[in-house]
Design a protein around this nucleic acid. Sequence first.
DNA 1: CAAATATTCAACTTTATGGTTGATTAATTA
DNA 2: TAATTAATCAACCATAAAGTTGAATATTTG
Lengths: 113, 113
Amino acid sequence: MVDDYLESQLSELIKSVSDTTRRQLLTQLCQQGPQRVTELASCYDMSLNAVSKHIKILESAQLVKRTTYGRDHWIEADLHRFELIENWFRQMKSIWELRLEALDRTLTGEKND
Amino acid sequence: MVDDYLESQLSELIKSVSDTTRRQLLTQLCQQGPQRVTELASCYDMSLNAVSKHIKILESAQLVKRTTYGRDHWIEADLHRFELIENWFRQMKSIWELRLEALDRTLTGEKND
DNA sequence: CAAATATTCAACTTTATGGTTGATTAATTA
DNA sequence: TAATTAATCAACCATAAAGTTGAATATTTG
């Protein structure tokens, strides 16, 4: 009964932002706007290839999009997909809080009898 | 200038919810309240040990807490730490949206000159 | 056209992750 | 007290993840 597709989408999305470098890349892109791969890479203490891979991971999670002009690839943040994750968190918290409130009512003693 | 401690806390938290089984465990705990390890494990198609490990991961991310009575360990969801993740998402989205709005103003043509 | 540049692809290494089984520890119950 | 039960620990395995280097592929520029 659990939506496997949503579940795996959620896993991919969450994993993609679980890495510090990728979170930094996203921050950088949100703050400074679209940038080329080499530009992005210059900020990190790792090979261009490593950064290129991180970008591909963000891309396949649909958190960035790529536009290619000749040999230059422009990478741009696209946080629409954040909604999926945020919904999950919101939903979890509401279930959790509901139980706590119900428990609280029980402990305080139901007034209705 | 980046807070390394916060960063690694965030990574640990996000990683801990990036796994489907752990998300399911959390859901189960939020919906049904505290449960023992064996009870929890009975719902999954994997060994008790595997589930026990998942619980430990959630525990060290401080998303569940454990209370021991004799040989029974009661596990309870505790989503207070969600705030950290939610703050990050909120902050990212606001940076992203700010840039988009600024860009939009630019394209529409600044009225101020 | 040759050299330089931007990027990815491929192969490899190391370490982390998610799972297993078998043994151990501690608490309960018959 | 012996057997059962709840849970972890330890060692292991397979796969995934994060990084490296070197080569390949386009595109641009001198």
